[in-house]
Simulated scan of single mutants.
Amino acid sequence: MTDEPGIEAPAAELRRQLAGTLEKDGRLRSPEWHAAVEAVPRHAFVPRFYRQSDAPGVTTWEPVTPETVGQEEWLRLVYSDETWVTQFDGRDIDWTDPRPISNAVPTSSSTLPSLVVRMLEDLDVHEGMNVLEIGTGTGYSTALMCHRLGSEAVTSIETDEGVARRACEALAQSGHTPHLLVGDGRVGHLDRAPYDRLIATCGFRNIPPAWLEQVTPGGVILTTLRGWMRSLGLVKLIVTGDSASGWFSEDDPSFMIARQQDAPESLGMVPGADDGTKRKAAYGPDVLTSSGPAFMAQLAAPDARFFSMPVDGGPHGTFVLDSVTDSFAVLAPMGSGWQVRQGGPRRLWDAVESAVATWEEYGSPSTAAFGVTVSRDGQAVWLGNPNGPQWTLPS
């Protein structure tokens, strides 16, 4: 693709424009990463991709290739600050005859460059450091690190064989030869440890213990924590021996969850109409979708998911189901408010309401007010300081 006549000159100009825009927006702060963005050809890593259609109805994704939209438009889209989907439902795409895709879940993508470089800047790398990347994806961020540190300093793990193969080919095409592995990123790669920095480009429900063992004391772990309902956010941890601690960022980036930690297919047992005990709810289901309260709901009910459907033949209600403990909460309209019906070992809505009330008591802060402590004894998110209110991460 990159050898086609007429591509390299406009691609180089688009990279310069992209780097300039990212620098102006405060994402690119160092000359080293600026040079990497200008040098690494993103079009080699996303030669074909899907974008979401804006047509009403069922969510549909449209293929984007030089053939479908024209070379100039394809190149412009490649170098725009957008995330482009490259795989659905864990299956390779037949690019010999690309067609629109509906009712599918994206499982691999090229993350928008502004988030990629923001994370790389936050990683705070220096020459001579050894870096482990969890989630090679298309290989674009891997190539940026190779340009910055040299290929020998970069190890990257991808769980999907097809995705890993394409990334390897694109990296080689671009002149980079990092250490690439196919496997479970949670176990890291002991053979090339210790690492000075670890960066994960997929979301995790907790910090894998192997990461603590393989990152050197004083080193950095940068990853997104997330649950089955939503992302919690980007957290930067400093490792101190067999523990680590740090803070969430102000932003709330969301990455696809690591496949080994994806939610089970079954949402759990839907309760019968007479199951559980009822009370008036202090909060309605909107807390599950509002930014700050939803962050708290995810902390309070880490194994739960929710959906809406008619309740007892009446209006739509919201079901919150915990597939691990078989606990449930069902919210239904009641006058001008809501009624909740709960059952199972955990009172899910009690926990959610308590967490949201604590958040409000502390002034409804952003995610930057929360931190994480990880040790052999457990993992917890805390508010304000390690001695403040805490919520345990799932094991």
Rank of each mutant, 00 (worst) to 15 (best):
T96Q: 13
L144F: 13
A300H: 12
T142K: 09
R376G: 15
L222I: 05
M334I: 00
S395I: 04
E161K: 09
A170W: 01
W391Q: 03
R165N: 01
V105H: 12
W95F: 00
H34M: 03
F370C: 06
L28V: 15
A300W: 09
I238L: 06
L180D: 14
S102L: 10
E158T: 11
P47A: 15
G292S: 11
Q214A: 04
G388F: 08
L22V: 08
P271S: 10
L180T: 03
T223F: 08
E32G: 13
Q260I: 01
R259A: 15
A9Y: 02
K236P: 00
L115F: 13
F45K: 00
T138K: 05
V374Y: 03
L22A: 10
G317K: 08
T318Q: 02
S323I: 00
V287N: 10
G344S: 11
G292N: 00
F49E: 08
T325H: 07
V85G: 02
R192T: 08
T155V: 14
Q342G: 04
V287S: 07
V239A: 02
S327F: 13
A36K: 06
R42L: 02
L132R: 05
A170Y: 09
A11I: 01
L112G: 08
S249F: 09
P41D: 14
W33I: 12
E158I: 12
S109L: 08
T107E: 14
S354E: 15
